[in-house]
Computed example of a mutant assay.
Amino acid sequence: MTDAGPVLASQAPHAAFDPYAARVAASPVRFLYGLNPLAKLAAPIPAMVLLVFVRDAATPLAFLLLAYAILLVGVTFTKRLAAILLLAVPLGAVVIGFGFALWTDAARVDQSVVVWQIGGWTLYGGALAVGFATGLRLAAILALTLIAGLSTTGPDLVRASVQQLRVPYRIGYTALAAFRFVPRFGHELDVIRQAHRVRGAHGGRGPIAAVVRWFGYVVPLMAGAIRHAERVALAMDARAFGAHPDRTERYLVPFRARDAVFVVLFWATSAALFWLFFPWGLG
């Protein structure tokens, strides 16, 4: 990458393959992969903010179903994703809802129906309603974040921020380099583990042996991290990183008309749902 100043999108070299992150191969029906990351963030954010202030169960349930509908169409489903959406999220909502029901002040709901009573402790139906409304609210916010989280790579988000939000490239590409540290650490940790197994170091079973093994991984992992950081710093310095205010973009993440359409449609649907349920009780 060279410091040639800003270039037009039609003139800039465009790489069809992202060298920093594996692109998801999906049919055109899985439309979320083709949208700009900023559009997938901007669309659900207003609804997520407003969901913090609602207290009913119907509104977050409607947004939860909306997010699920978008994800069912927009992303490629795997067994892990199905387990998250169909098992982990509902189960988490139930657990959180029951937990908040136990913490709800009984004096505020003691006029509701009694669901469970043990000695002097009583669980009221109003407490369950408050708890499960909270659980649904958190589940809806989580599901809305998955719209961008399951269909966006970190490098694409950084590039879109640099190109559309005018985030300084010194910050953006530093974050881009940081994204590559995580998989590299995973690879180096795997190599260190294999080397320890070959040498028979820190053998044995039990928690003490596991702690000893992990302490044995720390020093070589830190040494590898320092070496990698030095190489990255030298490579960025060799490419005159930070010497000029702008850099030529090798990989473009444009904001197209379909991105604006997605944002407007999502905002309109969110407004319709809030108007339909009007969870603030002012009407």
Rank of each mutant, 00 (worst) to 15 (best):
A42C: 01
T2E: 11
V211P: 01
K79H: 07
Y33C: 09
A39R: 00
A143H: 03
A177C: 14
A272V: 02
S112Q: 03
R205T: 15
Q163I: 11
H187A: 15
A268Q: 06
L81Y: 00
L252N: 04
V232F: 06
R23M: 12
G281S: 14
G224Q: 04
H202L: 07
T104V: 09
T78H: 14
A62W: 01
A148W: 00
V264N: 05
A238L: 11
P207L: 04
D156L: 09
Q117M: 07
R137P: 09
F181K: 12
V73T: 11
L72K: 11
A21L: 06
L146R: 09
V167H: 01
A225Y: 00
R256N: 10
G206N: 05
G154P: 05
V218F: 02
I208L: 13
L252C: 02
A69I: 14
I70V: 15
Q111I: 10
W267M: 09
G149P: 01
M48P: 04
R159D: 09
H14N: 13
F179M: 12
A93M: 07
R23Q: 15
Y169H: 12
L61N: 03
L136C: 13
Y169V: 14
W280V: 13
A260L: 15
V75R: 03
I192D: 07
V7W: 03
L35G: 05
V52E: 07
G126I: 03
V24G: 04
K40T: 08
P90C: 07
D3W: 02
R213T: 05
A9K: 09
R137M: 07
P60A: 12
A15P: 05
V29H: 08
A178W: 06
L165Q: 06
D156M: 10
I118N: 11
P28Q: 06
Q163Y: 06
F53M: 12
P220H: 02
L282N: 05
